[in-house]
Design a protein around this nucleic acid. Structure first.
Length: 624
DNA sequence: GTAGGGTTAG
């Protein structure tokens, strides 16, 4: 071991210089005590070590880059002063702020008794990096050591509970935060609102919000996004108005939430209003806001507007590109999605797993079998992204729709992730399209072992039997579904008119204009019949989430919403309807007749994609 | 020293 040749006195003088001249001299100190030799240095055994620690700490005060932190850390080890609490704490905190939480943790673990300030910082670091389990582990360890977390720790502990959707733990942490006297802290309360909302307890989130003494922009925004997160889209918009009424001015984050809600509701007019608001408030150059605007326009049916926003956006990142690719997929334009993906890669933006989900889904919806297979291969081989359940789902869907049923089955059986009922359900859907009863029965067996209580799979299997005229079997599956008390999702359709979103259920008569709506449908039915429309009695055309056969097909929610739109808008105006389930085959056929009769463009967004009906045809070319 | 946020399958 080679002794450090620097004279302690010289060190002291350097430290004095650092104190007076700041960071530049800190680098000098690092260099002075470094050695070109690979041999470890013998720790300095003199009073100067404390001074060196002080000097490094002092130098780190103005530290703005990771390199300096690493240098200081290395020097601390070289001088044997890595156990200096003050210096190590500083180094660990800096590592956290440079997102090097594991490096911070190694320093943290070397400190015999870290202060609560550092504990908090470590909990924060892991929570911020998405390592929620480790963040909670530290919180637990902190309590076991008898240390009391404070108002700086709880927001991040709660963030970790939210990240893991662990409501039970979240409730315990809530109680603990009250015990620790943090119930009035606004940061803790915002984190509570966020935690409850992300764990699906939006009403509890609201209770916390209502009790808050100070409601600033962030607390309002947490509640707004909390509503959105739980699918309470109308409430999201209402709450935004309430916030503004209370005198709090919106910022980009709150705008992101409302734009998302407009997209989910298909509320184009409202979305346009917010677009205008974005321009007035000067957020139109913010790439996050532009991405949300694109998403909103595309989900409201205006793909062209989404594209022009995309073209004008400055500083497009991978999320922005992926969003535009997803927009094309949603509208059934797989070719453009694929082209845009290639353009993105050429531009030098690296795709992520979401980009691939969007590309594969776009290929699947457009029937681009070979492209889909190629990109699936590419993602791992060229971009090093291991496929996840999302990607396998897209591939099973792609192969299944293209009739490659056994290829899809082999893929499920050999994938490295555990298949769920839904991915098998996708294959069952393909069996329905290609009327493969033999495979359907085997697949259904697997599904029912995994998930007994979804009506969709029972309906699907029953429809396959019906399509093969196996009526007894079809009836048996329906009875089995009734015995098992399988859940059924209620279908509904939304249409925006006069700045309000109108909601219709199947056979719904609760709307004030109900009589006029039903008369309109009767009038249409007569005209459709003359043009050759025959209501479909073929179960096979019905979807996995079909509304029950007991309901008259002509009163499916999308038809009620369309009739409402026809009555209330002037001729020639496009009609936009959003449906929570997949559009059924009979409605799909009927709308083709309706657009011909009414000479309108009707855009229906179902749970998977858009259908643009115009001049007797649909943009999906009946492939959906 | 602290909070809220844009894209994604079936």
């Amino acid at each position: 071991m080679r002794a450090l040749t620097l004279n302690p006195i010289k060190h002291l003088s350097i430290i004095t210089v650092i104190r007076h001249n700041g960071f530049l001299k800190f680098n000098f100190l690092c260099t002075s005590i470094s050695t070109s030799s690979a041999e470890p240095l013998e720790p300095i055994k003199s009073k100067a070590t404390n001074q060196i620690a002080l000097g490094l700490s002092f130098g780190l005060r103005k530290c703005t880059n990771l390199w300096s932190v690493k240098q200081a850390h290395a020097k601390a080890i070289a001088c044997g002063i890595q156990h200096d609490t003050h210096l190590s704490t500083k180094i660990a905190i800096l590592y956290v702020s440079f997102h090097k939480v594991d490096a911070a943790n190694s320093v943290f673990e070397s400190i015999p008794n870290p202060c609560s300030y550092l504990w908090n910082y470590m909990i924060r670091g892991y929570a911020t990096e998405g390592q929620f389990g480790r963040s909670l582990g530290l919180y637990n360890e902190m309590m076991q050591k008898g240390l009391r977390p404070d108002k700086f720790a709880f927001p991040f502990v709660l963030k970790s509970c939210a990240g893991l959707s662990n409501l039970e733990l979240g409730k315990l942490v809530h109680q603990h935060s009250v015990c620790c006297g943090c119930s009035n802290d606004r940061f803790v309360n915002v984190a509570l609102v966020d935690m409850y909302a992300k764990c699906g307890e939006v009403e509890t989130a609201r209770l916390v919000f209502d009790k808050m003494a100070v409601r600033d922009l962030v607390s309002w925004t947490s509640m707004i996004s909390g509503y959105g997160h739980n699918g309470y889209n109308s409430e999201t918009l209402e709450f935004f108005d309430l916030m503004r009424d209370s005198g709090v001015k919106a910022n980009r984050v709150s705008l992101l939430s409302v734009l998302l809600a407009c997209g989910s509701l298909g509320a184009l007019r409202k979305g346009e209003w917010f677009h205008n608001y974005v321009i007035q408030t000067g957020f139109q150059c913010d790439v996050l806001v532009v991405t949300a605007l694109m998403d909103m326009y595309a989900k409201c049916g205006s793909l062209d507007l989404a594209r022009s926003l995309f073209d004008e956006a400055a500083g497009k990142d991978v999320v922005c590109w992926s969003a535009m690719i997803a927009c094309y997929g949603l509208h059934g334009n797989g070719r453009k999605a694929v082209d845009l993906f290639n353009e993105m890669v050429k531009t030098g933006v690296r795709p992520n797993h979401v980009t691939f989900t969007s590309v594969l889904s776009a290929c699947s919806h457009s029937g681009l079998l070979e492209d889909g297979k190629r990109y699936f291969k590419l993602m791992e081989e060229v971009f090093g992204i291991a496929p996840k359940l999302n990607h396998f789902s897209c591939m099973v869907d792609l192969l299944g729709r293209a009739g490659r049923l056994y290829e899809a089955k082999t893929l499920i059986e050999n994938m490295p992730v555990k298949p769920d009922a839904i991915i098998w359900g996708s294959l069952l859907g393909a069996c329905r399209i290609y009327r493969n009863l033999d495979l359907a029965e085997r697949v259904a067996d697997i599904i029912f072992q995994l998930d007994h209580f979804q009506s969709g799979y029972h309906v699907l299997l029953s429809n396959i039997y019906a399509a093969k005229s196996r009526w007894n079997k079809a009836e048996m599956v329906r009875n089995m579904m009734a015995r098992r008390g399988a859940n059924k999702i209620q279908g509904f359709s939304l249409i925006e008119f006069d700045n309000t979103v109108h909601k219709f259920g199947v056979g719904d008569r609760s709307h004030p204009q109900s009589d006029r709506i039903y008369s309109k449908l009767e009038e249409l039915a007569a005209k459709m019949k003359r043009l050759g429309y025959v209501p479909s009695t073929d179960f096979v055309l019905h979807d996995i989430e079909e509304e029950g056969k007991e309901e008259a097909l002509s009163y499916h929610s999308e038809r009620l919403a369309i009739a409402f739109g026809l009555i209330n808008t002037s001729p020639g105006t496009p009609i936009r309807v959003t449906k929570n389930l997949r559009i059924c085959g009979d409605c799909h056929n009927a709308i083709k007749f309706i657009v011909k009769i009414e000479k309108r463009l009707i855009i229906v967004r179902d749970m998977h994609r858009f259908h643009h009906f115009e001049d007797g045809a649909c943009s999906c070319r009946d492939y959906w």
